[in-house]
Computed example of a mutant assay.
Amino acid sequence: MLNRRSFVSASAAAAASIAVPALYAQPKLEKTKVAISVGGKAAFYYLPLTISEQLGYFKAEGLDVEISDFAGGARALQALVGGSADVCSGAYEHTINLQAKNQFLQSIVLQGRAPQIAMGVSTKNMASYSTLADLKGKKIGVSAPGSSTNMVANLVLSRANIKPADVSYVGVGVAAGALTALRSGQIDAISNTDPVMTMLEQKGDVKIISDTRTLKGTQEVFGGPMPAACLYTSADFMQKNPNTCQALANAIVHGLKWLQTAGPGDIIKTVPETYLLGDRALYLASFDKIREAIAIDGVMPAAGPKTALTALASFDNTIKADKIELGRTYTNDFASRAKERFKA
C-alpha cells in the first residue's frame, strides 16, 4: 500500500512522464531568427502581423523576428526575392505574378480575406467627376507602384478600357504621406488601405468609387472571395524550414484568434501610437469598416486563388491563366495545424 510520500513522488513521476512527450512535441526550429519584410505595416491590411508581434506570439513560438517595413508591397517583395528577407508579409497575388516570371513563392498563412483597398477621387481636383473615363491622363496615388493598391486600381480602370499606361501612378505610402499627397492636390485620385481611406472619406476629401473593405464589396469588384495579405516565402525556404514555417503560421493564427474577440480599446492599447495618425476616433471607425476583412483562421479559401488569377489575367497580358499552377502558390498545411491547435 502506498504511503503519502511515495504516492506524491509516484504522482510527480507520472506527471513528468506525461509532460515529457508534450515538451518534445514542439519540434526544433531549423531557424529561430527570421527576417520578415512588409510594405506599409501601419495599415490595417497587416494588422494580424502587428498583433502577433506586439502580443509576443512570435516569441512564444521560439522565434526572433525582425520586421523591415517598406513603402509598399512591391518593395517588400523585392527584399524577399533579393535575399534580405526570409518571408514577406504581403498580398497573395504576388505569388501568381512571380510564377508567371518562373519564380515560385507560396503563401503559408492567410491574414486577410478581402483586400481592404478603396479607390476614391479627390473632391478638390476632380469636383466634376462622373465616370471612370474621367480618370484618363490623371495622377493616381498608390502605396507603391506594383503593389496591391496598384493592382486594384488597374482592375477598376480596366472596366472603362483604361490601360495602366493611360494614367500616372504615384507612390504615396499608406500613412501620413498619402493623406498629404491627396489633400495638397499632388494626386487626382487614390487607391489605398485603411485607416487612410476612412480618414479622407470622413473629412470629405475623397469620393469613393470602388471599395473592397467588406466581403460584399469584394464580391462586387472581384466576383468571388479575394485573398489578401498572407505570409509567403520561397518554395526552397519552406522545404528547408518546415518547423519554422509552422511556428510562423502558429503565431499569426494565434493573433487572428485574439482579433476575433478584441474590442476597439484592446486594439488601441496594442498597436503603436503612430498607427493612429493622430486621430483615435477615426482609427477606430476605420477598424469597424475592415473588421470582417480580417482572416479568421489563416486558411486559404478554396475559390480564392482562382478569383485572384482571373482578376490579374484580366488586365495583365503577361499572365496566362492556363499556365499558372495555383496549387504551387499556397499551402494550407501549416494554417490547418495552427487552426486546430488554437481552435480558431
Rank of each mutant, 00 (worst) to 15 (best):
I296L: 12
Q239G: 13
A302T: 15
M238E: 12
P264S: 07
P264W: 03
L231P: 02
Y232Q: 05
K269M: 06
H254M: 04
T261W: 00
P301R: 05
L256I: 06
A247V: 01
E273Q: 10
P225D: 11
A293Q: 02
I294D: 01
N243C: 09
E220V: 09
A251Y: 05
I268W: 00
R291S: 05
K216I: 15
P305I: 06
A262K: 00
P264I: 05
G223P: 08
T307F: 02
G223V: 00
G263E: 11
M226H: 08
A308Q: 06
A303W: 11
P264G: 04
Q246S: 03
H254K: 14
I268V: 14
K289N: 03
L231H: 08
E273N: 14
G298A: 03
S234R: 01
L276R: 11
E273G: 03
Q239E: 15
C245G: 00
P305L: 05
A302L: 15
A229F: 01
F237K: 05
T274Q: 14
P305K: 07
Q260T: 12
T214Q: 11
G217A: 05
N241Q: 01
C230P: 02
R291Y: 08
R280S: 13
H254L: 04
V253A: 09
I268L: 05
N241A: 01
L256P: 00
V299N: 09
E273A: 15
Q219L: 12
Q260L: 14
G255D: 09
Y275P: 04
Q246C: 04
I290W: 09
D279W: 00
D288K: 13
G217S: 05
K306I: 08
M238F: 10
K240I: 12
F287G: 01
L277R: 07
F237M: 02
G265R: 06
A262H: 00
L231A: 03
L276M: 11
D297F: 08
F287M: 06
G263D: 10
K240W: 07
R280Y: 11
A295L: 08
K269C: 02
S286P: 11
R280L: 09
D279I: 04
K306D: 13
I252L: 06
I267W: 00
P305C: 04
K306P: 12
A247T: 01
L259D: 03
R280V: 14
V271G: 07
K257D: 10
I290M: 08
P227N: 02
D266N: 03
K289T: 02
K306T: 12
L256R: 03
E292F: 04
K257Q: 07
I296C: 09
S234P: 03
I296W: 14
Y283D: 13
P272W: 05
A235M: 13
P301Y: 05
P264Y: 01
T261E: 11
G304W: 02
D236H: 10
G278D: 15
C245I: 01
T214S: 14
D288Y: 10
D279F: 08
Y275N: 10
M226V: 13
A302V: 14
